[in-house]
Design a protein around this nucleic acid. Structure first.
Lengths: 343, 343
DNA sequence: AAGGCCAGTCAAAGCGCTTTGGCTATCGTA
DNA sequence: TACGATAGCCAAAGCGCTTTGACTGGCCTT
């Protein structure tokens, strides 16, 4: 069933039927009702490809997500998507996901733009120095960055967490509990969020007269096995840490596994603070605060990004950026420093 | 830059240019070379909406994923997508993801089909009794199911794991190690895979004269907190299990957390076998076999589904279904039954 | 020399919508 | 009574591709 058939059966022109269905004011209320009711009965759905061609709008948002090594798709992405898609459903957009190998990203953006397959994109995993901003600006493709680059040049939309402050605060908390030997299990530091987290931590350390030690700082994909591996290494260091900061609950779980395996009790023998993205499939601090965390919902970030992007596409007014503050929640994974632990 | 401009500048008709670019044989090799080179120089990309309208093909695969309670997106989905998207990239398809609330699924399928937004869909989380098969068949929308329904009616494409056999085998392994009190932490049992797992387990139990006890069988979303909660409950049962089967590494991690918390040693005091989907962000048995698992890669399933669906869409010959066997890998989370553990 | 065939090209007709620019009653106003 | 405004409808022109059907000129056959 297409518009032509529908309008013929109704004894109306395509123009009128189209207008009736799309809520234009030039049709009488009675006609509109008749048309809409008939369309529903006939199960009429406009062909979206035709509509897209005619309007030049695709009503689709693109997500270009890079695969990291081992072809892994960042699990944090799941929750971000859950948030964003909620907004897409509400506002009538489709979500196009393009999983790409790290190198080919830019070409994919170019294609999406020239193709007119999407009305805008969300940029994931911004780097400290990232030319995607310039590319997208040149292409005149609306975009929102989940995170920021470190370039001073502003003018783009972003949603980010104050990572520096969160990690500085967590570090200070540990220092006040007497820790002076604090490890870091971070994300990949060519990405801004991870770089900022390290900066925040180092700043706090230095302000308390502690020189950061690269030997107890680790950076990689934020997945369980990496947390386990890093912590295992740290614990066999000649001068092991008494506390650790983890950039994700996933690495934190790995770290805790390593600690348990060595017979350490988390919160007593060793302290741990994790960054909690509120991943829905992992233990959170909701019910029983088992972990001390800095918390900010990545799903919320997804919602904010999506809304902001659509506002921009539809030229609606609205905020151009959001700097979220992570909530600091004290759980039982931290405690005062103890006599040096021995394996 | 569109086709018209391009062909004018080349002094050719749109027909010839279109054919040259799309590899039709009716153009001379020299013309083709000239056209392709010029198109590249001009950064020409055909407008995909126009192309879709003209061809009636969208070159897009739809994934309709239901949100479970708490608006959670199944984390197992991430890896499935990683696999599928690899195929989509290779074969020139886009991936459209539609996240829906559990109830509205069918309507979404109907819309996708009538809209002509996708050429086919992948059905996730099939239920024991699932009317999506009939709906999609009626709509004549090609589809592949990740899993199966339990309806005898065949004729659709699917990729599934032999869940029954995997769980029967794991159960037998535990029984042979002397366990007679075996718990189950399963997925949602209105879904076929979970129902089959339970069946496999119960069959093995009965074959060894053990009556399944519903009090140590749990069913829910396969996420860490649920594994933790279930295991905690089991351990405070008047007759606690000596072993447990988990439907996912995620619940297994939760279960292990509960065991650790009570001071139990996994593999000595209590045995655990998990179903390992090879989720890339979780510890697998690859490096050091810490967990005894039944293993089958969900990413591989994603690849198979995608290839099968595209074959179907393009009317290429190929297999219509795949029944994968899970690999049984013995790790250190299982051992002979011990004197009854006491909390 | 006439006819047939083929390679290479093109004009034009869709694909199914939206949107522009009329057109016709009808009504209020002077 | 006449005239402009307006509500309600329509025909037709795109949107940027693909594809059909037709047309050339050169070459081979008989």
């Amino acid at each position: 069933m297409n518009l032509k058939e529908l309008s013929e059966k109704l004894g109306l022109s395509q123009t009128t039927v189209s207008r009736a269905l799309n809520g234009y004011p030039e049709v009488s209320e009675e006609t509109r009702r008749r048309v809409q009711e008939f369309a529903r009965r006939m199960n009429y759905q406009p062909n979206s490809n035709a509509r897209r061609l005619a309007t030049g709008k695709s009503n689709t948002i693109g997500h270009v997500v890079p695969l990291s090594e081992h072809d892994m798709l960042n699990p944090h992405f799941t929750d971000f998507v859950a948030g964003a898609s909620k907004v897409y459903n509400r506002r009538g957009y489709d979500m196009l996901i393009s999983v790409v190998n790290a190198g080919t990203e830019k070409e994919v953006y170019r294609n999406l733009a020239r193709n007119r397959r999407v009305d805008g994109v969300i940029v994931h995993g911004p780097r400290v120095k990232d030319d995607r901003v310039r590319i997208l600006t040149d292409l005149k493709l609306p975009f929102v960055i989940h995170g920021r680059t470190n370039d001073p040049e502003d003018g783009y939309c972003w949603v980010d967490v104050n990572n520096r402050r969160a990690f500085a605060k967590a570090t200070e908390y540990l220092i006040e509990a007497g820790h002076r030997r604090i490890a870091l299990i971070n994300g990949l530091e060519f990405m801004t969020f991870a770089a900022n987290r390290r900066e925040g931590m180092e700043k706090a350390l230095r302000e308390h007269g502690i020189e950061p030690d690269a030997e107890i700082m680790f950076s990689s994909d934020m997945i369980e096995p990496n947390g386990y591996g890093a912590m295992t290494d740290f614990l066999s260091h000649r001068d092991p840490p008494t506390a650790v900061l983890c950039s994700s609950i996933l690495t934190a779980m790995g770290a805790m596994r390593a600690m348990h395996e060595r017979g350490f009790s988390v919160g007593r023998d060793l302290s741990l603070i994790a960054y909690d993205d509120c991943l829905s499939f992992l233990p959170s601090t909701g019910d029983h605060p088992s972990m001390t965390v800095m918390r900010s919902s990545i799903r919320l970030a997804g919602e904010l990004c999506a809304d902001m992007l659509i506002d921009q596409i539809e030229k609606k007014p609205g905020r151009r950026n959001h700097l979220l503050e992570a909530e600091f929640v004290i759980g039982s994974s931290t405690g005062p420093v103890r006599a040096k632990a021995t394996a």
